[in-house]
């Protein structure tokens, strides 16, 4: 099950991250997971929120460049070796990870990680075959 991630272009300028977060906060949108990829001159903010359609419209209307990307939220055992066990499945099955990051909060007693795969469909098949739980969009909204 894919979930929607919003990517926002951020200029390397004071207060830009604050601008995004306060815009979402003022409109009662909750950030579930977040990461920033940065270069020397700009950054890309990637977030998973409870109302992605509303959020992306809001951001665009406020002049941000934003787009939607499909990612997969995977449950990982919250214990030593938990992430390694999942990564081994990917490695064994030639599933390439573009990037990954953690959720802000926990959904169950397990940890939640967001994965962006080179081939999302393939990754989903492998996850299903190996009985690894992925989180649905509905579940994200209910977090």
């Amino acid at each position: 099950m894919k979930i929607t991630q919003i990517s926002v272009f951020l200029e390397n300028r004071k207060g830009r991250l604050f601008d995004v977060c306060s815009l979402l906060g003022d409109n009662n949108i909750n950030i579930r997971a977040l990461t920033i990829a940065e270069t020397e001159s700009f950054g890309v903010l990637r977030i998973v929120v409870d109302k992605s359609d509303v959020a992306v419209k809001l951001l665009k209307d406020s002049g941000f460049v934003a787009n939607l990307t499909h990612v997969v939220a995977v449950e990982v055992g919250d214990k030593p070796g938990g992430l390694a066990a999942v990564l081994k499945v990917f490695a064994d099955n030639d599933v390439n990870i573009e990037y990954m990051y953690g959720f802000v909060e926990k959904f169950s007693d397990k940890a939640l990680l967001v994965f962006r795969f080179a081939d999302t469909d393939l990754a989903q098949q492998i996850l299903a075959k190996n009985d690894i739980k992925v989180v649905t969009e509905k579940e994200i909204e209910g977090l």
Binding site: Q5, S7, F9, A37, T39, S41, F42, V44, R46, K60, V65, A66, N67, T69, E98, R116
Partner: peptide
Amino acid sequence: EVEEKIFSDEIKELKELE
């Protein structure tokens, strides 16, 4: 200026454009 058409979630694509 980065327009929506060229904005990519992938840093490497943006760096390639730069």
